[in-house]
């Protein structure tokens, strides 16, 4: 009980001093603007790489269609990517010098999938104080089916995967934007367990039916 007056003495000046700025500069200020870029139906054309595998590098070409429910939430209804694979020096050396069986190397041939896209960040940035560009940052989560083939050819095998990632979009006009996607397909395989197929993609997105 004896401490109470001391506590009160310490607390009340703090409360009073917190009120001073409010008394001097009351109110809060926001810049409220019409959202300049709004998406509706989006068709994406992208190129990218599958950079992780030490035995090959995949050069991706992807097509996708996304429908936007709101400015924050969208569904990438379908995406399909084909990978043109280039063997690395390591793989060539293993096959040539150590007679490793080429069938031991599985490569992604193509993949399809669907994702939910959540875009909580929308902002703008100044370029050299001369122009203002708008961008958004989004997260994706969904599923994929990957077709994996041995590098020696033969029938491919299908593997399910969980896809997640994040990306950024730079708006160029109401109909055109550019996006950078960083995604990872976590592939679930009975014989190989769980392994990752990350991808980096740059795409041009054409927007139809802009919401005014």
């Amino acid at each position: 009980m004896r401490k109470l007056p001391v506590v009160l003495l310490l607390v009340f000046p703090a409360i009073a001093s917190a009120q001073v700025p409010e008394l001097e500069n009351p109110g809060t200020i926001q810049a409220v603007q019409e959202r300049q870029y709004r998406l509706n139906h989006e068709l994406g054309f992208g190129v990218g790489v599958l950079p992780l595998d030490a035995f090959y590098k995949g050069l991706l070409a992807q097509l996708s269609y996304t429908t936007h429910f709101s400015d924050q939430l969208a569904w990438r209804v379908v995406r399909g990517a084909y990978s043109y694979n280039v063997n690395t020096g390591l793989r060539t050396q293993l096959v040539r010098d150590f007679n490793v069986n080429p069938t031991a190397f599985e490569q992604v041939q193509w993949m399809v999938g669907s994702d939910v896209v959540w875009s909580p960040f929308y902002g703008k940035t100044a370029f050299l104080n001369r122009s203002v560009s708008h961008f958004e940052i989004f997260f994706v989560g969904g599923g994929s089916v990957l077709n994996l083939q041995n590098s020696s050819g033969g029938p491919g095998v299908f593997r399910p995967a969980v896809n997640f990632g994040l990306g950024a979009r730079l708006f160029s006009s109401k109909h055109l934007s550019y996006r950078l996607d960083l995604a990872d397909n976590v592939v679930i395989s009975k014989d190989k367990g769980v392994f990752n197929v990350p991808s980096i993609q740059l795409s041009a997105a054409i927007n139809f039916g802009v919401t005014e």
């Binding site: 926001q30 810049a31 409220v32 603007q33 019409e34 959202r35 709101s70």
Partner: peptide, 9 residues
């Protein structure tokens, strides 16, 4: 509104 965006000053 959903068509607007607010930036705190």
């Amino acid at each position: 509104t959903s068509a607007q965006v607010a930036y705190t000053f």
